[in-house]
Design a protein around this nucleic acid. Structure first.
Length: 690
RNA sequence: GGCAAGGUAGCUCAGUCGGUUAGAGCACAGGCUUCAUAAGCCUGGGGUCGCGGGUUCGAGUCCCGCUCUUGCUACCA
């Protein structure tokens, strides 16, 4: 078999957030594939980079009062640390904000120009005059024009489902500055991808490059109609590369992000004395050299990687991907990751509590070639790791290595009834599963081998043989067989568990460097003093991680971060009165009958220091007499006529000055700091608060 | 509404070209073992393969209809 030359990428993580367990599905999936290819003796390079451009980065840098460059430099360090912790090993980790990338963007752009694919059109968008920037739909909030629901995003309403443009919103507000946006028109540049429709039909439907479901999806959603022009420019200010032949306009982040794959490769080539053409050239000459390009991505960015990207490469005379491997999303305990449930777990939080190898194995045992979502069931996670890795695999070494520490492995491989040979014969089947991204199938086969080996140990019972000094060599033989079976399994698991490989090399004092190490048993070599290879997972550790996840400052979305910082809100209030940890059920909540009420009269209470006496109306049903401890902050005459929120079913309470028939709701620390709640305009006395 | 992918043991999933009695792991029950990190081994219970029809000597597998779940998309196929 001749060695393949394979360039592999994972999607570029955005420099606006930390790596979390969802990201890791992809990086672990890719890393396993890369390690597998390398182990097979193929020439394989794993290329990635930070995706650094765009509005979100610009806004965040502004809010944090520093340069974009400083922000992305920090985030790069964080990303690299997380990847290292999880054994994700890139051959090159670049940045889209690099000179290589700029040069390539220029090059590809001029090719697209030459191919007459670029069109200019006016685009009218909301503009934030205060922040001096155009606003993407999700940076605008306002009232839905259809159902009047407030606080809706600029593209659609999640109350009534209506879709509209941000300009239709009632009372639109910029999420960046709080300013009222205005309509402005600017020139944008578009790629007329429709001109490649026929070619894309062929490329996507050939069965070579995509999973079938993905090909069907593209056919049904995009390729059945003319492809819309793709808006690839943004007017200044924008953190990115300025378009050379259109000053004042910048390439949209999704234009230069995938080019980052090539830019990062260029960086690698420079370090290793190779040329880009060795990997990215297309045409018959390049074809004969046979480099392959494999992208691993999540299903959310299918669109960019399977239509625009191949089209761009095609027209710019670069090699198009041989395969785009698309995976699903991560759920935790069957649900989308949630910050409040603590299941939105950052890589760093996980690594603080649990061994990264566990996650690598768990993901491997769940990943198949399809784009199904993957569920991280925390209980299954613990039992799977414990029973498969500790109970089956590592146990093989743990139950035999000690018996042969002194004598090492037998100098001739003993008769094992053909077990080693049979397992060796499965190498190609297991390899095919890895190569086809069916890690789940591979893990199943490998665990079958571990089961078999454990049965062998049981039958031979070396601990019994050991009691008879005459059978010493038999003990050595049994342990030699077992440790060789163990080592064979470790070779098969090497792409998933690199650390276990190192430990095994140390234990059996021989390197593991190639898939073929599974084909030949070790004989006559030494065995080091046994040390535990892997610890069991305690459910408590998992729980501790979840709790930590809840505590850890939840990562805010760019919009929220920008909106938050803008108000300068501090943590003092929360610190003074921490959140109630215990949940209340919806049933608990509905027991409290909150109502809108109008203050029809308010009086001082003679003899009371803190109380005001309020007469409240709920519309019908007469009035309520309520004593409220708000004298320090409100004057009676300021209250008359206004609306308040009343807990209407609070048990009546006899007080020194009369009976209080409810409680008005207020926030604040006390004293002057008391703030009554009032509903937005439109609420009527008697309305229940839900 | 449209498109796509699914529905197999309590849970997570295999099941090739239609072919013997439908499998694995986990969980559960009973037993064995005590080398091993409460690890290991054996035995067992547990299935209307979503429902209904069809093709066939034979259907989890192929065809049609229905139903439910998930994802995408949306009054446009």
């Amino acid at each position: 078999m001749t060695a393949r030359r394979i360039l592999v990428t994972s999607a570029l993580p955005y420099a606006n957030g930390h790596i979390h367990l969802g990201h890791l599905v992809e990086y672990i999936q890719t890393d396993i594939w890369v390690r597998f290819q390398k182990l097979r003796g193929n020439r394989c390079i794993y290329i990635c980079a930070d995706d650094t451009h765009g509005t979100a980065i610009m806004i965040r840098a502004r809010q944090e009062g520093r340069s974009e460059e400083a922000l992305i430099a920090d985030m790069r360090e964080s990303h690299l640390g997380d990847f290292a912790a999880f054994g994700v090993e890139f051959d090159n980790y670049g940045s889209t904000n690099s000179e290589h990338n700029r040069r390539l963007c220029h090059q590809i752009w001029s090719k697209l120009r030459d191919a007459d694919l670029i069109a200019e059109k006016d685009v009218t968008q909301l503009y934030d005059p205060k922040a001096e920037t155009f606003l993407a739909d999700r940076f605008v909030k306002g009232t839905c024009p259809k159902c009047q629901a407030s606080d809706q995003y600029g593209d659609n309403c999640d109350k009534c489902g209506a879709t509209y443009t941000p300009a239709d919103l009632i009372n639109p507000v910029s999420a960046l500055s709080g300013a009222t946006p205005e309509l402005r028109t600017a020139k944008h540049l578009f790629v007329q991808i429709e001109k490649l429709h026929d070619w894309l039909n062929e490329w996507t439907q050939s069965g070579q490059h995509l999973q079938d479901e993905v090909a069907n999806y593209l056919k049904g959603h995009f390729l059945c109609d003319p492809l819309r022009d793709w808006d690839v420019s943004r007017p200044a200010p924008y953190f990115g590369f300025e378009i050379p032949d259109s000053p004042g306009n910048y390439w949209y982040v999704w234009f230069d992000a995938p080019i980052g794959y090539i830019g990062s490769t260029a960086e690698w080539c420079e370090k290793h004395g190779e040329t880009l053409d060795d990997w990215w050239a297309c045409g018959p000459e390049a074809e004969s050299r046979g480099a392959e390009i494999h992208h691993f991505i999540g299903k959310d960015i299918t669109y960019f990687h399977t239509l625009f990207w191949p089209a761009m490469l095609k027209k710019a005379d670069f090699r198009q991907p041989d395969r785009v491997h698309i995976h699903g999303f991560l759920t935790v305990d069957g649900e989308k990751m949630s910050k409040t449930k603590g299941t939105f777990i950052q890589a760093a939080t996980y690594a603080k509590h649990l061994e990264p190898a566990y996650l690598r194995y768990y993901y491997a045992s769940k990943l198949g070639a399809r784009l199904d979502d993957l569920d991280l069931n925390l209980e299954e996670f613990a039992t799977k790791v414990n029973s498969d890795l500790v109970g089956k695999v590592v146990n093989l070494a743990s139950r035999t290595a000690r018996f042969v520490e002194a004598v090492g492995l037998s100098s001739v491989y003993p008769d094992d009834g053909g077990m080693f040979a049979e397992a060796a014969a499965q190498a190609e089947t297991i390899a095919a599963a890895y190569d086809g991204c069916d890690y789940n199938g591979a893990m199943r086969l490998i665990m079958g081998l571990a089961d078999r080996a454990n049965r062998y140990v049981d039958e031979k019972a070396p601990w019994t043989l050991r009691k008879d000094p005459a059978k010493a060599s038999e003990v050595q033989d049994v342990c030699s067989v077992t440790l060789n079976l163990f080592r064979q399994i470790v070779v098969y698991l090497a792409p998933v568990l690199p650390k276990l490989v190192q430990q095994t090399e140390r234990l059996l004092q021989q390197p593991i460097q190639n898939w073929n190490d599974s084909q030949t048993p070790l004989v006559g070599t030494g065995v080091a003093k046994f040390e535990h290879l892997m610890q069991r997972v305690e459910l408590a550790q998992v729980q501790a991680m979840i709790e930590d996840g809840i505590q850890a400052a939840p990562e805010t979305t760019p919009v929220a971060a920008a909106a938050l910082n803008q108000w300068n809100d501090g943590p003092e209030a929360l610190a003074a009165e921490p959140l109630v940890a215990e949940h209340c059920t919806i049933d608990d909540f509905v027991k409290v009958d909150l109502r809108v009420a109008r203050v029809v009269a308010a009086n001082e209470v003679v003899g009371a220091d803190k109380l005001l006496q309020l007469t409240l109306s709920l519309g019908g049903e007469g009035t309520r007499n309520v004593f409220a401890g708000i004298k320090s902050a409100y004057k009676p005459e300021d209250l008359v006529g206004r609306l308040v929120i009343l807990c209407a079913n609070l048990a009546p309470r006899k007080m020194k000055f009369g009976i209080s028939e409810g409680m008005v709701l207020a926030a604040g620390a006390g004293g002057k700091e008391i703030f009554l709640l009032n509903p937005d305009t439109g609420a009527k006395p008697g309305h229940r608060v839900h």
